Amino acid sequence: MAVYAAVCLVIFLIPLVLQDAFLLNKYARYLVFGMLAVSLCLSWGQAGILNLGQAMTFGIGSYCMAMALKLKTIPVHTGSDGLPDFMVWNNVTELPWFWTPFYSLVFALLAGVLIPACCAALLGWFMFRGRVTGVYAAIITLAAMVVVQLLIIDQQKFTGGFNGITDLAQFDVAGFAFDAYDSATYYLVAICLTAALFLALAITKSKTGLILQAIRDEEDRVRFFGYDVALYKIFIFSVSAGIAGLAGMLYTIVMEFASPTFLGVPLSLSVVIWVAVGGRQSLLGAMLGAIIVTGVQGALSESETFLDSWTLVMGLLFVIVVLFMPKGIAGGMELLANRFGGHRAVPAVAAPKPARAEADDARRAESLS
Score class of each variant (00 low, 15 high):
77 H>G: 05
52 L>P: 01
69 L>V: 12
65 M>R: 05
114 L>D: 11
123 L>N: 01
67 M>F: 11
54 Q>K: 08
35 M>L: 12
102 F>I: 02
124 G>A: 01
64 C>N: 03
113 V>A: 15
79 G>C: 10
23 L>C: 09
113 V>T: 14
68 A>H: 13
119 C>K: 04
62 S>L: 09
76 V>G: 15
123 L>I: 10
45 G>A: 06
121 A>V: 14
30 Y>I: 08
99 W>H: 14
33 F>T: 02
94 E>W: 01
99 W>T: 07
113 V>H: 08
99 W>K: 07
43 S>D: 04
98 F>T: 07
26 K>M: 13
111 A>D: 05
44 W>R: 00
66 A>L: 13
104 S>R: 04
55 A>W: 01
103 Y>H: 14
51 N>C: 06
96 P>A: 10
113 V>L: 15
124 G>F: 02
38 V>N: 02
28 A>H: 01
61 G>R: 02
97 W>C: 01
81 D>M: 14
114 L>T: 15
108 A>E: 11
84 P>W: 15
80 S>L: 12
117 A>L: 11
55 A>N: 02
73 T>H: 08
35 M>D: 03
63 Y>P: 04
116 P>S: 08
109 L>F: 08
49 I>F: 06
22 F>Y: 15
48 G>K: 03
58 F>I: 00
94 E>G: 06
66 A>D: 10
32 V>E: 00
33 F>E: 00
69 L>H: 11
37 A>C: 04
89 W>I: 05
103 Y>K: 12
122 L>R: 02
74 I>G: 09
22 F>I: 14
92 V>F: 05
55 A>K: 00
30 Y>T: 01
112 G>C: 13
37 A>L: 09
25 N>V: 07
107 F>A: 06
60 I>L: 10
119 C>L: 15
71 L>W: 12
34 G>T: 05
26 K>C: 02
109 L>A: 15
85 D>L: 15
56 M>W: 00
117 A>S: 12
71 L>P: 04
70 K>C: 14
24 L>H: 07
72 K>L: 12
100 T>M: 07
114 L>R: 12
91 N>L: 12
99 W>R: 08
87 M>R: 12
124 G>Q: 00
59 G>C: 05
75 P>V: 15
39 S>G: 01
124 G>K: 00
108 A>N: 10
26 K>S: 09
53 G>C: 05
81 D>T: 09
105 L>V: 12
68 A>Y: 08
66 A>G: 13
84 P>V: 14
44 W>T: 00
31 L>S: 05
73 T>N: 11
40 L>I: 04
66 A>E: 11
80 S>I: 11
40 L>V: 02
105 L>S: 10
34 G>W: 03
86 F>G: 10
115 I>W: 07
78 T>D: 09
101 P>I: 09
37 A>F: 03
45 G>L: 06
49 I>T: 00
95 L>Y: 09
84 P>D: 13
119 C>G: 04
87 M>D: 10
122 L>H: 02
54 Q>T: 06
90 N>W: 07
80 S>V: 13
54 Q>M: 10
117 A>F: 09
92 V>A: 03
57 T>Q: 03
106 V>E: 12
104 S>A: 06
90 N>A: 15
105 L>I: 13
88 V>L: 14
87 M>P: 13
61 G>Y: 03
82 G>P: 10
116 P>F: 05
31 L>F: 05
52 L>V: 09
37 A>D: 04
108 A>M: 11
97 W>S: 13
111 A>N: 04
48 G>Y: 00
47 A>R: 06
106 V>M: 08
75 P>I: 15
